[in-house]
Design a binder for these strands. Structure first.
Length: 168
DNA sequence: GTCCCGTCCTGTC
DNA sequence: GACAGGACGGGAC
């Protein structure tokens, strides 16, 4: 079986949740003030996940440093497989956006070879299971406005993340 | 600035 | 299959 492990750790912004299978990260939860809340969101739909505080220690360290305002590059293995090929392409395209930079939904659509699929890109990003590691907050509307964000905190979180990265 | 329609993918029935 | 709906974009007004 593919054993799922998870961990919750504290960052400057609150408790951050990580869940991973043997293949790599399958879910992240952006910082929340309440640890049980993070745990609830993290384990929602995950069966038999085992708590492991040492899970992906390097990644934990990178995330903590990230929220302290340091420019870090996440080298976490990605292990989710329950997404469609298109969503997969969108997420990988998104993962290539450098910190502190933003692209529009249509630019991202363009890089994956479907220039008119801006809307589809949006719906693919809304399914992003690993926000932050896949920096979906770096994707904004073509006119410069933020667009939407499905992770806890919504656009407020998106804005805060972008402001944080501007200081990198 | 707002409205509307084209676009393309996903989830549900 | 068909259909509705979405983290969009761009043109018309």
């Amino acid at each position: 079986m593919n054993q799922i492990k998870y961990t919750i750790f504290k960052t400057k912004w609150g408790y951050f949740g990580l869940a991973a299978s043997k293949k790599g990260l399958i879910r992240t939860i952006l910082p929340l003030k309440s640890r049980p809340d993070v745990q609830k969101r993290l384990l929602d739909g995950l069966k038999d996940a085992q708590y492991d505080p040492k899970l992906l220690r390097d990644v934990q360290k990178q995330i903590i440093e990230y929220f302290e305002g340091k420019a870090v590059k996440f080298d976490a293995p990605i292990g989710f497989d329950s997404v469609s090929p298109f969503t997969h392409k969108v997420l990988w395209g998104c993962a290539k956006i450098p910190a502190g930079k933003t692209v529009s939904y249509s630019q991202l659509a363009n890089t994956i070879g479907s220039p008119r699929a801006g809307r589809a890109v949006g719906s693919a990003l809304s399914k992003n299971p690993v926000p932050l590691i896949i920096p979906c907050h770096r994707v904004v509307h073509a006119d410069g406005s933020l667009g939407n964000f499905s992770a806890p905190g919504g656009t407020t979180t998106k804005k805060k993340l972008l402001e944080l990265e501007e200081c990198f």
